[in-house]
């Protein structure tokens, strides 16, 4: 999901908690991108509201973005978060509360400019709670409602808000034990996101077929849903 389009000269500002990773990604973007591609990095984490505010403010010092992508998150094992209070809290915060706060702070800054696009990474997991990952899913659905409300608030401000709902994708998040089923290729997901953002689509399913799949899953009657092992 890190592979943004680099067909026109773009200045990337990368925000994250590990400097060496950010540096490697920025080299990658500059090397792959067309002439004129630039990348700066800002090291910061998202662990409490002060830190989130400081990180967003620091990122904005590099200039007001045309597009702000909020894509941090972590996929915990449901068994672990079910058993550990602190892990559950963290799962809800890092996937829901802190991205929502980021979005609000970004919106407040962009509204002054009267332009800009905010893109939040939700998930198909937020469309219906399932026993296998409802903590993560609940946080993502918080973000979905938040994004919808923010988009509503943004009407007439020149700022747009999009929520991306990827299906399971082959990234570091889904590697290792415990992932089942077929994973989408990050390039395909990225392409869908780029196209959706260009069209200012409010909700972007990626790959698009997930829009239909999730409509069906949402519509399944309870007794039938209960029997599914998902």
């Amino acid at each position: 999901m890190r592979r943004w389009c680099t067909e026109e000269p773009t200045h990337f500002v990368l925000v994250g908690r590990r400097e060496d990773t950010l540096r490697a990604i920025s080299e990658d973007l500059v090397t792959r991108g067309c002439d004129g591609t630039e990348a700066s990095i800002h090291v910061g984490a998202f662990r409490d509201s002060e830190e989130v505010a400081a990180t967003v403010a620091g990122a904005l010092e590099h200039g007001r973005p045309d597009i702000a992508l909020v894509a941090f998150g972590s996929l915990p094992e449901q068994a672990v978060v079910s058993a550990t209070a602190s892990a559950l809290t963290e799962a809800l915060e890092v996937n829901g509360v802190w991205p929502a706060l980021c979005a609000q702070l970004l919106f407040n800054a962009l509204r002054e400019e009267g332009a800009g696009r905010i893109v939040l990474l939700g998930s198909v997991a937020g469309d219906r709670g399932r026993r296998s990952n409802y903590a993560y899913g609940a946080a993502k659905s918080l973000l979905a409602t938040f994004a919808a409300g923010l988009a509503h608030a943004a009407v007439g401000t020149g700022v747009s808000v999009s929520l991306v709902k990827p299906g399971p994708t082959d990234t570091p998040m889904t590697r290792g034990a415990g992932t089942r089923g077929r994973l989408a290729a990050p390039d395909d997901v990225a392409r869908t996101i780029v196209a959706g953002v260009a069209r200012k689509q409010p909700v972007i399913y990626a790959p698009p077929r997930w829009r239909v799949i999730m409509a069906i899953i949402r519509a399944l009657p309870g007794p039938l849903f209960d029997r599914l092992d998902i």
């Binding site: 490697a24 990604i25 080299e27 990658d28 500059v30 090397t31 792959r32 002439d35």
Partner: peptide, 15 residues
């Protein structure tokens, strides 16, 4: 798969 650098004059790529 990251790419590290490319020298547009010499054509040396580090990947």
């Amino acid at each position: 798969t990251r790419m590290r650098s490319f020298d547009r004059d010499s054509g040396v790529a580090v990947v």
